[in-house]
Design a protein around this nucleic acid. Structure first.
Lengths: 261, 261
DNA sequence: ATGTCTTTGTGAACGCGTGCACAAAGATTG
DNA sequence: CAATCTTTGTGCACGCGTTCACAAAGACAT
């Protein structure tokens, strides 16, 4: 039906649900793969399978973007790639800075996913003076002192924090003060930011712990009932646990530094 | 709660909502920090602030674990650390293998968060014969051929995939066939696994794209009358994100500048 | 054109997660 | 021991996201 006259529920014109936004990159990736194979059109069923989601959900997701499909046929791959790219803002260039060039920061700088599709590493920043000037992934590392100037001169609005936990909030504050409004945080810390600033966190530790939970549950299903009160309900259990965890983490148990920096 | 009419059909201790499980590591981290400062007890309000969540939500989360608090006082830090650790399965040792020792794999191997708190890097595996024997983070890299034997000999149930996208599914299949039932996937691919196997994915690209979406939306706010001519309705639920430091709304209109054809 | 077949787009129901608000529980004080 | 104060634990309502199921839309064959 194409555009027709503006005849849609005016109540929610452009409010794309957050859950949908989170899936758009997934669809885009699948579509890009199809595009490279020169597949002209794809049905919601096929694309959903490729993206690992329910087909009804996919259709509803796309319905928030508009009516880009053709009934009886499916979706035009190229067209959909473009529409989603535009919706996600990938048709423009996003300069990004990475702060904290340790093991992880360096790995991120080398990550191909950055360069492709709209994102460009504008600068690498580290607090260690010894790192200054040293090239990582072909880009010379700059000192933290330059942070504000870099953000300003390059019009950076997206920052990646890969510093140790202890430095993350401080770096975050400086980034925000300098004009960054979106932050991807790899440091194991809760960042506090003003309204209007988006923060997304990537936390290896948390992911592993969630997996451990499910893993334990699976194991417990075979071994049957036990768990719950086996350890008793007093602090003695805590004491015992602490003693035998000598090989644990030692005094610095807190935030395991993401990397030396 | 005792008066509740219909109890959960499922076993009691297993009825922990997924959303709650995902927050437990967050609480645990905050509690560990308090523990190191020798803070004896903490209220839901304080802990919630430290973890960056709503206090009611935190109390409800804890209520799924049991009644570990004392009204009028709060929660015993040490005791809660133990209870959450146990619930997450961190009181036992989890051998983990990392497959794909490139930039990212090496960074993960060096990540301190692994060693601490129950997780132990049992082996590093890479397909490149040139890597074999070469130590990374103090652990010699082993060839992919050894994968099955490593999994079996070490009783590994958690695998981390840090390979290129093209190799991920194949590696995944081998891990699963060898007995791994939990996978943390860093490769930008949708993994297909049998029932009973948990997969969590960490995808830098996706996170950046989500940030770009919101960034574009923020930018479109000011330059609303730009390239577009359509767009009449300036409605939307806006800001799904909310940080604790909520004070005022600020000039947060939203309004996407662009509109589908 | 007309009918049939395929696939989209979406109304509606359902379930989960969130946050409010408050009664109950226990500490603390007089 | 009684009164008061603090903080937990949770009933309840609301909103978001998911899924089903189907009518509408268009392609395609006759």
């Amino acid at each position: 039906m194409a555009t027709g006259r503006t005849h849609r529920p005016a109540t929610r014109s452009r409010g794309i649900p957050e859950a949908t936004v989170a899936r758009l990159p997934l669809y885009l990736r699948a579509l890009t793969a199809l595009s490279e194979r020169s597949v002209p059109t794809v049905s919601s069923e096929e694309l959903a399978a490729a993206a690992g989601v329910n087909s009804a959900k996919l259709r509803k997701d796309f319905s928030y973007l508009g009516s880009y499909g053709t009934r009886g046929v499916g979706y035009d791959v190229e067209y959909l790639v473009y529409q989603i790219s535009r919706e996600l803002g990938l048709t423009q260039d996003w300069p990004v800075v990475i702060v904290g060039i340790g093991n992880l920061g360096a790995a991120l700088a080398n990550y191909g996913g950055f360069a492709s599709r709209g994102f460009r590493v504008a600068a690498l920043i580290d607090a260690d003076p010894a790192m200054a000037g040293k090239p990582v992934a072909g880009i010379p590392v700059q000192h933290t002192d330059e942070l504000e100037a870099i953000i300003r001169d390059n019009g950076v609005s997206i920052g990646v924090i890969a510093t140790p936990a202890g430095a993350a909030q401080q770096v975050c504050d400086r980034l925000v003060a300098a004009g960054v409004t979106s932050i991807l945080n790899f440091a194991p810390t809760v960042l506090t930011v003003p309204d209007g600033v988006d923060v997304r966190k990537v936390d290896l530790s948390i992911e592993l712990q969630i997996l451990a939970f499910h893993e334990q549950r699976k194991a417990g299903e075979e071994a049957a009932a036990d768990v719950t009160q086996a350890a008793g309900t007093t602090n003695s259990a805590v004491a015992a646990k602490r003693e035998d965890s000598a090989t644990d983490q030692g005094p610095d148990g807190d935030v395991p530094a993401v990397m030396p920096a």
